[in-house]
Amino acid sequence: MCPGGGSEAPPELYSRGFLTWEQLSALPPPAVVSYIFLLLCACGLVGNALVLWFFGFCIKRSPFSVYFLHLAAADAGYLASKALLALLGAGGLRGPPADYVRAVCRLAGLCALVTSVSLLPALAAERCACVTLPAWFWRRRPARLSAVVCALLWGCALLLTGLHNYFCAVLGPGAAACGHVDAFLGILLFLVLCPLMVLPCLVLVLHVECRARRRQRSAKLNHVVLATVSVFLVCSIYLGIDWFLFWVFQIPAPFPEYVTDLCLCVNGSAKPVVYFLAGRDKGQRLWEPLRVVFQRALRDGAELGEAGGGGGGGPTANTVALEMQCAPGNAS
């Protein structure tokens, strides 16, 4: 209340940031939104768990499967944090224990989000190097480059999350340092990482177009990388608009928090669907083992043939034989 006993003073508006410490909109999310979050996160967690199982234990490790494996781990962490937040919201739980769980979930969600976004430029750049420099990629590339890059990106995400937690949670969301960290995260995600993932994708698009003109079959892996990056760009547009309007024009976020979070949950849940759709073979039977489908999504026979000097028609037979070997219980 105001000192004179009048109406309540309007709350000071902060940037919603990436941990949503302060709400810019007074409109609370509808009750049904929590159940939508739970359903979407449950489906996404099942899909990413399948990707972790098949890419980690059932499919031969490749430079690109390592990235997809870490992407699935990061997306699963983000979806799990949002599922717990939705569960607390649906149950109406309050008190210090629930607040502590919320703080941990937001912290883990930010770390997983930063890791997932930073993995996409690394994946796109490595795929671009494979397409443009196949001889170097398959013969001189360090064997554990993908694992080292993923470990470094996880470490950087943990460092940024720790700094954001200190300046925004310990010092408070109204501190000037919290605003600086939020601005840095926005610049990193939208002005640095997004262009870094778009430029290699443009090279892949040109490569796919050139192959189409030469009537050569493009590797499915190209389409998987392009679709994965495209899904993120589409799903993150609302968060990008919120951040851009606030930090450039000082305009409060036009979209409620649950809209941007829902789009990011769609991004985390859509990647297994992308792998499944890319790996399906329309000429095969309706039901195929998931191991064969995921293996086909990573098909890179065209580039392997070019690096080894093979022709354009050989990879199809080889990949079919590989898929037959991957099928469980197949002795023929």
Rank of each mutant, 00 (worst) to 15 (best):
A112K: 02
G172Q: 10
G77F: 00
G77Y: 03
A135M: 15
E323Y: 11
P252I: 05
A112R: 04
G329S: 03
G310Q: 10
E22D: 05
L119R: 03
K220M: 09
A176K: 12
A183W: 12
Q23L: 14
K60P: 13
Y275K: 08
P10T: 14
L202D: 00
L277F: 06
C326E: 13
L290W: 09
A74N: 05
R94Q: 13
V117K: 01
F167P: 04
L191I: 14
M197T: 06
A26T: 15
E22C: 10
E209I: 13
P195A: 03
T316A: 15
L119Q: 03
G309S: 02
R285Q: 12
A157V: 00
C265W: 06
N48Y: 03
V203R: 12
T161N: 04
A327Q: 15
I36G: 12
P11G: 04
T319P: 00
A147Q: 14
S269P: 03
H207M: 02
L153N: 01
W154H: 11
F64L: 10
G95T: 08
V32L: 11
L110N: 06
A76K: 04
A80S: 09
V148W: 08
V32H: 09
C265R: 03
N222V: 05
R94T: 14
C111T: 07
R127L: 10
P256H: 08
H70Q: 13
T316H: 12
G174V: 09
C111M: 12
G329K: 10
M197I: 06
G179L: 04
V181W: 02
L107T: 11
G329N: 03
S118E: 01
L206T: 10
D300A: 11
C194G: 11
L79N: 06
L152W: 05
V114G: 06
R217W: 11
G77R: 05
Y275F: 15
L119D: 01
A176R: 14
Q284A: 15
S34K: 04
I36F: 14
Y166A: 01
Y78P: 07
L233H: 04
R299N: 14
M1L: 13
I36N: 08
F294E: 03
F249S: 14
P3L: 08
S7Y: 09
L206R: 13
G309V: 05
V293F: 04
L88R: 09
Y100S: 15
G329C: 02
Y35S: 12
K282G: 11
N222K: 11
A76Q: 06
V131K: 05
I251Q: 11
L110K: 01
L221A: 11
L24N: 14
G308A: 13
T161I: 01
V51S: 12
R102N: 09
L38A: 10
N165L: 12
W138C: 09
C150L: 04
L163G: 02
S65Y: 00
Y166G: 01
V114N: 00
V293C: 00
F57T: 13
R214K: 09
V248R: 13
F68P: 00
A278D: 13
M324V: 12
A143E: 15
S65N: 07
